[in-house]
Design a protein around this nucleic acid. Structure first.
Length: 536
RNA sequence: GGGCCUGUAGCUUAGCCAGGUAGAGCGUCCGGCUUUUAACCGGAUGGCCAAGGGUUCGAAUCCCUUCAGGCCCGCCA
């Protein structure tokens, strides 16, 4: 059974009405790891729908959280905003400076990072029923009851946090972080509580008071989380392993949730996605990749597939290199397996049946349109193959022509093939494209190539060179010359091609050689051949 | 110190929750395609399921112990 279906099954025992939640603090650039949080929820939502549950997916934006520090991408001037809530501070401009103009037009720091992410989610087929802005929720009084309940039971909550997390709380600890006279929620001492008013003294010695029902501040994280479950009725939420550790915020949260009068949601902890550098060189240069950037490289269903195929507790090494091409090709292979069908069902072992159901679910959950069943039509062109053609053929029409000749497509490219080619070209132009798949046209003869050349090769190359000077510079003619001259000298085609691959690409294999030569300038090819001949 | 996850063929892994003869992809090797899409097709190779113990007619699967690796326990998913 697919992992999401298992969760849906567990949820069905709790009731027919499910609210699945995700939450993210928009404190900086979103990255591929955030996608796991959101896609896990989205996939679970679909699994619930598949098993007939009534399900909602809500996305909490934690824009009531304060700025923790001046991040590396921010200008020093953000120092003044530390401790201020993310919904309340200006967005950074391209230089990391506070952009007051945009702020005045209504774009906050939180919005700045959130908006592109939300856009990416649409492309990736994530269907959120409600985006909940935490800051606005406090302001609108949606958290009012939960906030009052927490403040009225501050001792009980303190007891839970201290006992479960083993952490000792400050004597003045209180489950409310008010906003001080400067707009910061750091460094404030609570001096009194009279429902619904909190009295406090800030770090400058100023005294003040906050009404917890009007969002003048927020609940601290360990209380804020269960409060959300409580006021929005969350029944299921996946969260990162940091929250899942013993004594972590889920452990304290579930008890606090009960104290506030609601059962805690069904939990699922997921492992991190780490970014595998593009080879060893770039892991130190800190190449990161955001959801938007990833969407410029591969079709969105591949990213969905990445999450759908891996159980949440499975660590993922995200690799924009060769592994991503393999992932994409694996996806297509499975599509075509699905199309072929499982065979005679009754003759399958239970294990085969399980595998089949799982394959099907993985593919269903990878679709951008949840109503569309996976289909393999027009998906016969592998990413691997496309990456070669895209490098050899600069003109799209030449790519289609090549695919037609090889029978992979008939007529004009259909479906999302043109889009895939466009993505592939972006990928090739980026630093993320794997070196192992990159074609390197040589300008010199490398040592390995020279070692493999002998007198017979020299004569062969000379003959090629002579013919290449006059022939039509198209793939078929070039290929004909290579083959005919080899035959004339009783050189096996395998050897002939290997010799040429060494000279042209610096390796002993490659994609169809004549296509590469036809893309090169005639004189460059002739020069390379001359160089090769002269090393013998 | 507390806790979570992982350990299955050279590599990536499925199967574990509901115990019933270990599956796949990649790689490798051989063969085919008599002009090669690092393509495709066919075949072969390859695992005492980390180790030990227990439960059972039967354990990769359940329980216990150990070992190894990764990670989390200051609001970074």
């Amino acid at each position: 059974m697919h992992w999401a279906d298992s969760i849906a099954k567990a949820l069905s025992h709790r009731g027919d009405k499910q609210v699945i939640a995700s939450g993210i603090t928009p404190s900086g650039e979103f990255h591929i790891g955030h996608l796991r949080e959101i896609l896990s929820s989205d996939i679970i939502k679909r699994a619930c729908q598949r098993s007939g549950l009534d399900v909602e997916f809500v996305f909490f934006v934690d824009d009531a959280d304060p700025l923790r520090k001046v991040y590396s991408f921010l200008d020093e001037s953000y120092e003044q905003y530390i401790g201020h809530q993310l919904a309340n501070i200006p967005p950074p401009d391209n230089n990391g400076m506070p952009d007051m103009a945009r702020f005045e037009q209504g774009t906050s720091y939180a919005d700045h990072f959130l908006q592109p992410f939300i856009q990416a989610l649409e492309h990736i087929g994530v269907n959120i029923d409600e985006i909940i802005y935490n800051y606005a929720s406090y302001k609108d009084g949606k958290v009012a009851e939960a906030s009052r309940a927490a403040c009225n039971q501050s001792e009980g909550i303190r007891e839970i946090i201290e006992r479960v997390s083993g952490r000792e709380l400050n004597e003045n600890w209180f489950p409310w972080n008010p906003v001080d006279s400067n707009g910061s929620i750091d460094g404030i001492t609570i001096t009194g509580w009279q429902d619904p008013i909190v009295k406090w003294t800030d770090s400058n010695g100023n005294e003040g008071q906050s009404d917890v029902t009007k969002g003048e501040g927020k609940l601290p994280w360990r209380v804020d989380w269960p409060a959300k479950w409580s006021w929005r009725g969350v029944t299921m939420e996946p969260f990162g392993k940091d929250h899942g550790a013993a004594g972590g915020s889920y452990d304290t949260g579930k008890e606090i949730s009960l104290l506030l009068g609601s059962p805690p949601p069904y939990p699922t902890t997921y492992e991190w996605i780490s970014l595998k550098g593009v080879g060893a060189m770039s892991s130190s240069t800190g190449v990161t990749i955001g959801p938007l950037e990833a969407l410029e490289l591969v079709p969105p269903e591949i990213l969905r597939y990445l999450i759908a195929r891996n159980k949440p507790n499975r660590h993922i090494d995200f690799d924009t290199g060769g592994a991503l091409i393999e992932l994409a090709d694996e996806y297509q292979k499975k599509l075509s397996d699905l199309e072929k069908g499982p065979g005679e069902w009754n003759t399958l072992s239970r294990r085969q049946q399980v595998a089949w159901e799982k394959l099907k679910a993985q593919l269903i959950y990878s679709q951008i349109d949840p109503k569309q069943m996976p289909q393999a039509a027009s998906e016969r062109v592998s990413f691997r193959h496309l990456s070669l053609l895209a490098q050899i053929r600069s003109d799209d029409d030449d790519v289609w022509a090549s695919l037609q000749r090889s029978g992979l497509i008939s007529g004009q490219p259909s479906g999302d093939l043109p889009r895939r080619l466009e993505l592939m070209r972006t990928w090739i132009d980026s630093t993320h494209f794997p070196e192992a798949f990159r074609l390197r046209i040589q300008t010199e003869i490398i040592d390995e190539a020279a070692e493999n050349l002998d007198q017979r090769d020299s004569e062969y190359l000379t003959a090629l060179s002579n013919q290449f000077k006059h022939c039509g510079w198209i793939s078929d003619e070039i290929n004909g010359i290579i083959c005919n001259e080899a035959k004339a000298r009783e050189i096996s085609l395998r050897d002939a091609f290997q010799t040429l691959y060494w000279i042209v690409l610096g390796q002993d294999f490659g994609p169809k050689l004549a296509s590469i030569l036809a893309e090169m300038k005639r004189e460059d090819v002739l020069n390379l051949l001359e160089l090769a001949i002269s090393t013998v």
